[in-house]
C-alpha cells in the first residue's frame, strides 16, 4: 500500500497485515529451526547470527555515517575478552558481563572516534587498521589475557541452568541478534539515525542545521563498537575458547566485505551480506547444493542463488 494515512506509518516497522504475517512466520521459523536442523547447521546459524550483529553495527558506521573502519576485529576481541574476564575474574553473571563488555568496546570506539574527527577515507582506514592490529598484539603479549595461548571461555548460565549445547546457545544468540537488528532499524528511523545519515551526505549542511559533528561522529563509532563488542562476547561462548589469532586483520576485512556486499546503508542488506562465501559459509553452500541434487525439493529455487553466491 502506498497510501499513507498518518505519520506513524512513516516509521512503523510493519504497516500491513501481510508484513505482520511474514514477520510472525520469520519468528516462528527462527524458533522451529534448531529443532529440525542438524547440529552443524545450528552451529552455522549461531556463527552467522553473530556476524549479523557485527555487520549491522559496522553498517551504522560505514553505511550510514560514512566513516570507514578496518579495525572492527579489535572491538570484537575487546568484547570477547571483556566478557570472559568479567565472568572469570569478577564472577559476574554472563548477561551483565556481556553488556559491560559491550560498553567497554563502545568506550574504545569513542576513543577511536576522536582521531576520526580529523581523518577521512583512506587515512581513517589506516588509523582504524592500526587500532585493530594493536589490540591483538596487546592481548597476545599480556599474560592477563592468556597471551598467545588464549583462554577458555566459561559457559553462560542462568543460575544452575547452563547453556552448553549449540541449540541452547542458538536461542541466546539469535534473540540478542534479533533485538539488536530491530534497535538499529529503529535508531535509523529517528533523530539520531537521521543525524548520522546527514553527516554522511553533507557534513557542512548537517553542521549548519545544528548537528553536533563531534558528538555524532564519535557516537557512531561508539554504537558500532558496542555491537561488535556484544557479538564478540557471544563469539567467546560459541567457540568456548578464544585466542588472539581468532581476531586477526582478515576478520576486519570480512566484516567490511559483508557490509559492502549486503549494501551500504541497509539493515536488511547487513543480514543478507553475511552470505559472502568464506570457508565456513562455503561449506554450507556446498551441502545445500548437495542436498538439492539429492532431494525432491526442486521447486525451491535455492540452487541458482547459492551457486552464484559461491562464484562471487
Amino acid at each position: 500500500m502506498d497510501m499513507k494515512r498518518d505519520y506513524y506509518e512513516d516509521i512503523q516497522l510493519l504497516d500491513s497485515k501481510v508484513l505482520w504475517f511474514w514477520f510472525l512466520m520469520l519468528i516462528a521459523s527462527l524458533i522451529v529451526f534448531p529443532f529440525l536442523a542438524p547440529n552443524y547447521y545450528i552451529y552455522m546459524a549461531n556463527y552467522m547470527a553473530i556476524h549479523v550483529i557485527v555487520t549491522v553495527g559496522l553498517n551504522i558506521l560505514v553505511g550510514y555515517t560514512g566513516q570507514i573502519s578496518l579495525g572492527h576485529a579489535g572491538f570484537f576481541a575487546i568484547g570477547a575478552y571483556g566478557t570472559v574476564l568479567l565472568m572469570t575474574v569478577l564472577h559476574l553473571p554472563f548477561l551483565l558481563a556481556i553488556l559491560l563488555a559491550g560498553f567497554i568496546a563502545a568506550f574504545f570506539g569513542f576513543i577511536l572516534g576522536l582521531p576520526a574527527l580529523r581523518l577521512e577515507g583512506p587515512y581513517l582506514a589506516i588509523a582504524t587498521l592500526g587500532f585493530g592490529m594493536a589490540i591483538t598484539q596487546v592481548i597476545g603479549r599480556w599474560q592477563v589475557f592468556g597471551g598467545r595461548m588464549g583462554m577458555e571461555a566459561p559457559s553462560p548460565s542462568f543460575g544452575a541452568y547452563v547453556l552448553e549445547s549449540d541449540r541452547q546457545l542458538y536461542f541466546l544468540i539469535v534473540t540478542i541478534a534479533f533485538l539488536l537488528v530491530l534497535a538499529a532499524r529503529n535508531l535509523m528511523k529517528t533523530r539520531v539515525g537521521r543525524a548520522f545519515i546527514a553527516i554522511r551526505d553533507s557534513d557542512i549542511a548537517a553542521e549548519t542545521m545544528g548537528v553536533n559533528l563531534t558528538f555524532y561522529k564519535t557516537l557512531a563509532f561508539a554504537v558500532s563498537a558496542f555491537y561488535a563488542g556484544i557479538a564478540g562476547g557471544l563469539m567467546a561462548f560459541l567457540l568456548g575458547f578464544i585466542n588472539p589469532s581468532t581476531f586477526n586483520f582478515i576478520l576486519s576485512i570480512y566484516f567490511l566485505a559483508f557490509v559492502i556486499v549486503g549494501g551500504l546503508g541497509s539493515i536488511f542488506g547487513s543480514i543478507t551480506g553475511i552470505t559472502v562465501p568464506w570457508e565456513h559459509i562455503d561449506n554450507v553452500f556446498r551441502e545445500v547444493d548437495e542436498y538439492y541434487r539429492t532431494s525432491q525439493y526442486r521447486k525451491h529455487n535455492i540452487r541458482p542463488d547459492c551457486y552464484s553466491a559461491r562464484c562471487v
Partner: peptide, 14 residues
C-alpha cells in the same frame, strides 16, 4: 533536529 530530543536509547527502543 535542534527541536527534538530523542536520544539513542528512546530512539532505538520505540
Amino acid at each position: 533536529h535542534i527541536h527534538m530530543k530523542t536520544g539513542i536509547w528512546t530512539g532505538s527502543t520505540f
